[in-house]
């Protein structure tokens, strides 16, 4: 299956915030290893709810499960809760600010 380019927005979520006290817990792992996608995008790519997808940025690739973002996301945009996995996709370039580009990361998505 061919790759498709999306914009990934890592951010806070309630599930991630309530489980951050124990990062080894299944709740935290589940919260930070799930990406949300527009239902129409999922349908077009043939991704079933809960199926694993590979997100590949210029830095690294991660595999996470994919769920429907319902009405939350516009087409072509993904959301994932902050965590070690989302951080691996970031580049180290800070453009003189000290801040790596942590939101709005270009990723190529494939179903696995």
């Amino acid at each position: 299956m061919s790759e498709e380019r999306f914009i990934l927005i890592p951010g806070r979520s309630t599930e991630q915030g309530t489980s951050v006290g124990d990062k080894s817990s299944s709740a935290y792992q589940g919260a930070t290893r799930t990406v949300r996608m527009h239902p129409a995008d999922m349908e077009r790519l043939g991704i079933i709810e809960g199926r694993r997808v590979r997100l590949r940025s210029a830095q690294a690739a991660i595999e996470v499960s994919c769920v429907s973002g319902k009405d939350e996301l516009p087409l072509g945009v993904l959301f994932i809760a902050y965590g070690p996995d989302s951080s691996r996709l970031m580049g180290a370039e800070t453009e003189g600010t000290g801040m790596p580009e942590s939101k709005g990361i270009d990723v190529d998505v494939t179903s696995v």
């Binding site: 830095q59 690294a60 902050y82 070690p84 951080s87 691996r88 970031m90 180290a92 790596p100």
Partner: peptide
């Protein structure tokens, strides 16, 4: 702080 969890990989 936990930079090993939320910094870019080269760091």
């Amino acid at each position: 702080a936990d930079p090993a969890a939320n910094f870019p990989q080269p760091a």
